[in-house]
Simulated scan of single mutants.
Amino acid sequence: MYEVIQDLKGMGESNCAWNRRHYIRRSTLTAAAAIYHDMFGAEEKENEVSATFQILYFIGWKPDHSQRGPAPRGSAGASLKDIGSHTT
């Protein structure tokens, strides 16, 4: 689990909450590592775990008088409600 945390930090995916604690107790990390290994550890290799992640991109902006107006309500071809409901 510790390698996964380092990889996430390297990708810039650490916790960005403003009101979070800036530390985690060692006992909490040890317990989390044991649980993570039990759930995702590879049976054939003792110190190996699998990890996957998804990257979602969003964009936002502040309206300006020089921009076009919004499209009419209901004119979109896709809905944000459908994210994650696709079949592979």
Rank of each mutant, 00 (worst) to 15 (best):
28 T>E: 11
40 F>A: 03
62 K>I: 13
37 H>I: 10
3 E>C: 10
77 G>Y: 12
41 G>A: 04
39 M>T: 11
27 S>F: 04
30 T>F: 02
36 Y>S: 13
45 K>D: 07
45 K>I: 02
10 G>T: 07
69 G>I: 14
81 K>A: 15
23 Y>L: 03
88 T>H: 11
84 G>C: 03
72 P>F: 12
72 P>E: 15
52 T>K: 06
79 S>E: 06
87 T>E: 14
21 R>M: 08
12 G>Q: 01
11 M>H: 02
23 Y>T: 04
62 K>Y: 09
33 A>D: 00
4 V>M: 08
29 L>G: 11
51 A>K: 04
55 I>P: 03
77 G>P: 01
51 A>D: 15
28 T>S: 13
75 S>H: 07
7 D>H: 13
14 S>L: 08
37 H>A: 10
75 S>T: 08
26 R>C: 10
54 Q>K: 13
27 S>N: 11
78 A>Q: 09
58 F>A: 15
57 Y>L: 15
13 E>C: 13
57 Y>M: 07
22 H>D: 12
88 T>W: 09
41 G>R: 02
32 A>E: 11
21 R>C: 09
1 M>F: 06
77 G>M: 05
76 A>R: 02
39 M>E: 08
24 I>Q: 08
46 E>G: 04
35 I>Q: 10
3 E>Q: 06
82 D>Q: 10
58 F>L: 12
39 M>V: 06
53 F>H: 11
78 A>G: 08
85 S>R: 05
24 I>A: 11
85 S>Y: 04
87 T>W: 06
62 K>E: 13
36 Y>V: 09
4 V>K: 12
46 E>R: 01
7 D>V: 07
80 L>T: 10
42 A>C: 14
77 G>K: 08
74 G>D: 01
33 A>Y: 00
58 F>D: 12
88 T>M: 13
85 S>E: 03
7 D>Y: 12
22 H>S: 05
87 T>F: 04
18 W>C: 10
26 R>M: 14
27 S>I: 04
21 R>V: 08
20 R>M: 12
